[in-house]
Design a protein around this nucleic acid. Structure first.
Length: 468
DNA sequence: TTAGGGTTAAAT
DNA sequence: ATTTAACCCTAA
């Protein structure tokens, strides 16, 4: 599948109320670009929603907000004030929750740890770096009080009382809403809406050409055939760029469209790409949903039924138990990393589960080299000959580093370990006796009602354990 | 789909 | 610090 189309689909479904497992499966299935900030942001927002779906907040949220802020910074966008307050209230909540049980001295230790983790390391780190969007008076205010509460019980009560007035989950929700607003609607929605509401556009793509200019222009140009071919131009337009006003389309636009639409092939219109685009445009928003489902393998169906089974079995709400998932950075925070070595160490200590892995931050900077390279480095060539100067640097798409792909894969969440019951073990023994070890899927299907939460791989692993 | 190596976190 | 149990990844 074309990487752009795949991107549009993900962008679209990230806004749909889909189950996490389905989303994970899709992310595994779709080829995705790693250079699209908005897509990354959408992913983070989706993860944030997932995190707060059980109406509580975790430190994972702080990490996600930091990643988001880093993306904002890369884009040169100012941080939303909603993000500041979300970050602040989540940080407070994650610390003060250890104080809430009155007089429970044992929790004071946890509180101490939390203050160290969140305020002494994570937040103090920000102070040292310029331009971190979370920095605000409110945050320092809280920090002072929270640190004072370490030593004085009076401050302790004060902090608890004050923290009653914050609503971190709400704050995160508000931020997510605002951030979505800022990102704008998914491209497919825009296209569908434009197509529905704009006759000109419909005419343009539907082949009903009232003005008789657009495609004719393209054809003229194509017949002339003296132009260099450019790739990656049209259909990659930024969202909101008006694809409409066919009548007023400038010749250069037509050229772009025509050439890219031809996809570099010799065939005349319509090409597969055009057909794809047209197909997409002709679908209503409802139909688009159906289209999203199309590429899914049967496994997805299974994932869905399985997860609903799990829910029924466990008697929980969808997307619960997100809180204890390991952190999965979507992007690396290079800015923080560069601040100083000690900080780097501090960060790693904040996330023990990430510590054992190779440093994601460093890996990211290493991966940078193989991203798409469309920087205009003509000057660097040092040969400003006349010919060269008029040649636009052609964006060449290099293959995406596997390290970069890793970032997306990390959206996958690890299941919570579930102890095998004696019944399950017995059933497995029976199954293996009957069907032989190795026919895991068959055994699983035969005793579905027993192995509610297991996969064929689980059966295999369990048998391996039982045999050792 | 499975086998087999790898990872994670709880138990010892 | 090691071992164990559950889960993940991926080549074939």
């Amino acid at each position: 599948m074309d990487i752009d189309i795949s991107r549009w689909i993900l962008e679209f479904i990230l806004r749909q109320p889909l189950d996490d497992s389905i989303l994970n499966a899709l992310i595994h299935t779709l080829p995705l670009p790693n250079d699209n900030l908005n897509l990354k942001k959408a992913l983070i927002l989706r993860k944030l929603e997932s995190e707060i779906s059980n109406s509580s907040v975790t430190e994972k949220i702080l990490e996600l907000l930091e990643l988001f802020e880093e993306l904002d910074h890369q884009e040169g966008i100012e941080t939303l004030k909603e993000m500041k307050s979300a970050y602040c209230s989540v940080a407070v909540e994650c610390t003060v929750k250890f104080l809430n049980e009155k007089g429970a001295e044992s929790d004071k230790g946890k509180y101490f740890e939390a203050v160290k983790r969140i305020w002494k390391k994570r937040i103090n780190l920000m102070e040292k770096i310029e331009n971190v969007g979370f920095v605000c008076e409110e945050l320092w205010d809280w920090r002072d009080e929270i640190e004072a509460a370490l030593w004085e019980d009076k401050c302790c009560d004060n902090v608890i009382r004050r923290s009653k007035g914050i609503f971190p989950v709400e704050a995160v929700k508000v931020f997510v809403r605002e951030a979505k607003e800022r990102i704008g609607p998914p491209f497919l929605d825009v296209v569908a809406e434009t197509y529905r509401s704009d006759d000109t556009v419909r005419a343009f793509f539907g082949g009903v050409n009232e003005q008789g200019t657009c495609w004719d222009n393209v054809r003229e140009v194509r017949k002339g055939n003296a132009l260099p071919r450019q790739k990656h131009v049209a259909f990659r337009r930024p969202r909101g760029a008006s694809a409409g006003t066919c009548g007023g389309v400038r010749i250069s636009d037509s050229i772009e469209l025509g050439l890219d639409a031809s996809g570099g092939q010799d065939g005349f219109l319509p090409t597969p790409e055009i057909e794809k685009a047209q197909e997409a445009l002709k679908l209503s928003s409802k139909e688009l949903r159906a289209m999203v489902k199309d590429p899914l393998p049967d496994a997805l169906q299974f994932a869905e039924t399985l997860s609903s089974l799990v829910r029924d079995h466990m008697g929980h709400q969808p997307a619960e138990n997100n809180s204890d998932r390991a952190p999965h950075p979507v992007v690396a925070s290079s800015r923080m990393d560069q601040a100083n070595g000690e900080n780097c160490e501090a960060q790693r200590n904040c996330h023990p589960s990430a510590a054992s892995k190779p440093d994601l931050m460093n890996r990211k900077s290493a991966a940078h080299t193989s991203e798409r390279d469309d920087s205009a480095d003509v000057s660097k060539e040092g040969s400003p000959s006349g010919v060269r100067r008029f040649t636009l640097p052609s964006p060449k798409r290099t293959k995406i580093s596997p390290l970069k792909k890793y970032e997306f894969k990390n959206f996958t969440t690890r299941r919570k370990p579930t102890k095998w019951s004696a019944l399950e073990e017995d059933t497995l023994r029976t199954g293996v006796q009957k069907y032989g070890s190795g026919n895991w899927t068959h055994i699983l299907n035969t005793y579905r009602d027993i192995f509610v939460v297991r996969t064929a791989g689980d059966l295999k692993d369990k048998w391996r354990n039982m045999m050792s």
